[in-house]
Write a protein that binds this DNA or RNA. Structure first.
Lengths: 136, 136
DNA sequence: CATGACACTTACCTTTTTGTGCGTACTTAC
DNA sequence: GTAAGTACGCACAAAAAGGTAAGTGTCATG
């Protein structure tokens, strides 16, 4: 009892307020780890992109969601939007230094999953099989 | 035109199919980067926890969401569930080796955000101010 | 001279996610 | 003897996320 409490407390110190409901980090985390946030960040790690380039690259994203995601990320200071006042419109999106920094972490996570996908899927298959056997 | 296409293609090779709609990685990513997935993973990096320990630690999570999150993570092979057939029920959750591995990445992301929260919030404030000025 | 590209925005609707409250089977504490 | 803790599952409702379709204004292409 005392040991688990001690661990909790020690961690609570180290990791600030992420576990607290009102922690502002949670909002940032939501933007960054949102379905499209992750993909956009990873895509922009490959360099500057225009809006429709991103739309084509990130499979399945709607214009609305892409626009919204980019706005969140811009407001959080991860994405830099440069619009050229020409016609037809030309807008370029790139990562800020802050964005590149967090992009590295997100990319690392994404890469890890892609690399370990075979392991994960075989574990899933085993788990599903056991569930099926229990029901049989 | 050719340059941006070249970059896209080169990346598409390196990063497999994350950008494709049907990529199974996307599902895993959803579980791991879900609001509660992140917090649970980080919490379990601190060691084994019981269900209600987690519930108390991860502020704001409902029992239903915690249960669901744990089930996803267990099925993906990140979390290990051990239930003791005693009364009252006693269940322990811990990370598998796979879970500890991905937990490191998630923790790194969370830690980065917490550390850089001041920078982010000051950027936000500046952005908000500029928007306000434009509207005035 | 009609179409499509560009970078969005808005309105509307559907789907998904999330929360709430209740029930369980049993025990310990008050 | 009543309340609380344990680890959930289930049904219902609310909230949020997401998709679809259309419109904007101008230009290049067919």
């Amino acid at each position: 009892m005392s040991e688990s409490k001690a661990v909790s407390l020690a961690e609570q110190m180290r990791r600030g307020e992420l576990f607290s409901t009102q922690c502002p980090s949670r909002e940032i985390l939501k933007h960054v780890t949102s379905q499209w946030g992750v993909l956009v960040l990873v895509a922009l790690m490959g360099g500057t992109h225009r809006f429709s380039e991103l739309r084509r690259k990130v499979g399945g994203v709607s214009e609305k969601m892409l626009a919204q995601t980019l706005q969140y990320l811009e407001r959080d200071g991860f994405v830099c939007r440069v619009s050229f006042p020409v016609v037809p419109p030309h807008v370029e999106y790139s990562l800020t230094p802050l964005g590149r920094d967090i992009g590295l972490k997100v990319e690392a996570l994404a890469d890890w999953i892609e690399s370990n996908l075979p392991s994960i899927m075989s574990v899933q298959a085993t788990a599903d099989q056991e569930v099926a056997e229990q029901q049989a």
